[in-house]
Write a protein that binds this DNA or RNA. Sequence first.
RNA 1: GUCCCCAUCGUCUAGCGGUUAGGACAUCACCCUUUCAAGGUGAAGACACGGGUUCGAUUCCCGUUGGGGAUACCA
Length: 475
Amino acid sequence: MSVVTRFAPSPTGFLHIGGARTALFNWLYARHCGGRFLLRVEDTDRARSTEAAIEAIFDGMRWLGLDSDEPPVFQSKNQARHVEAVEAMLASGHAYRCYCIPEELADMREAAKAEGRKALYDGRWRDRDPAEAPAGVDPVIRFKAPRDGETVIDDRVQGEVRIANDQLDDLVMLRSDGTPTYMLSVVVDDHDMGVTHVIRGDDHLVNAARQTQLFLAMGWQPPVFAHLPLIHGQDGAKLSKRHGALGVDAYRDMGFLPETLRNYLLRLGWSHGDDEIISTEQAIAWFELDGIGKSAARFDLAKLTNLNAHYLRETADGRLVGLITPLLEADGLAIDAPAAARLEAAMPGLKPRATTLLDLAAAARFYVAPRPIRPDDKAATLLDPDARQRLAALVPGLERLADWDETGIEALIREEAEKSGLKLGKIAQPLRAALTGSTTSPGLFEVMAVLGRDETLGRLADVMTNHDVAMQQKD
RNA sequence: GUCCCCAUCGUCUAGCGGUUAGGACAUCACCCUUUCAAGGUGAAGACACGGGUUCGAUUCCCGUUGGGGAUACCA
């Protein structure tokens, strides 16, 4: 039997980090098994579901590269089928009409709480004659759940979980307005879609018992369950909106790569020995359900950042240029073909110093910024008159230099430093300030090689002639 | 309240009765060095507690504590 997994988000918000991990695990397991991965939008709560949320979820899935094997299923479109399933249960005696009004239910809950019992519906309409139905009350249809014994879930993550049936009440399958509830819809859809493995958050563990009862009552084989521990925030509390539970789009905007998220999310709750850096191909080959941990994990931005730095270093220069170009353009810079080429040449020096696309773009800015380069405060301090004189002394040599490449430039500068009896830093730092406008940058000789002779000399000339630029920044 | 789940360095985790309890991130030190990173070397840092079982428990069982989840005509 081929494996079928599904990701079934309810479209009430963005694709958050926990949902993304659930989707990833389902996707990986299907890919690993050579099965199919399906996407189902659980929009049975029409009031809370929004078009924007649906788009945000699809968008997030696309960005993460989690492609589904069939077009997404919208649960709301299967309503007729869900109602039909309930009618069949009514006919087979597995369901009944309940005429309780909300106030009655509230009283019931309160009474149960007072007695220290689990707050459950007491099944008062289970066997009551429908002729006693009060006038003007639209009934709900409830599942006639087993009252004795227990329901056992053989969970692939949590192990064998036993829940006494008296802990589960007769759940509502059809609301008084005739619409199906989530609990019923999931079971019917999972069955109809041929889902073999339900991999989802821990918060559904008890639901798995109710759903198992439903599957059994309908005469269907329940799927294999695997309930993932939830992800917690840095403070250990539930990863909620106010704890920085952001959508995956927020991480994209912070400059993280999708492969970083995939690797990070995979390691959050799943392990393969001591392996940390795991490519998606490797993950597909290795992913097994028994590698999933049982305890909740905290989301750690520092580790995510470190991982992103790693993937940035591994990313092809051309792709990086493509990714930061929009950021630079948003910053008011025009990136034409020569500028893009210069950025690409600069990437080997920029990449290892960056942790996100945002700081990569910021660090790359000086390469394509228009002259004159505005030095920042610290850089301006370095460009005092003495330093400018030292820089001026370099110009003839740079003009004459035969091979304008990193080694040639380095040899020349070192020679100049030695000649004047200065430590390299005494020349290199002002030079860096003049060329990059900053006190930190990639290797100086590499910077000069990438900038080219004309641009280098031009930037030096700017500093030499335009004292105002330097002086102005000094205070 | 009731039911369910969980518990190894600050964090993510390895471990599946006998280990100097391993790795990664973060932290600190040193090396490298034209700045900043990267890289290299090293340091510090954990089995929540109490009972059992066993020749022997981080590992198995029970309890305590702590954390989380579920208790809807939401999903």
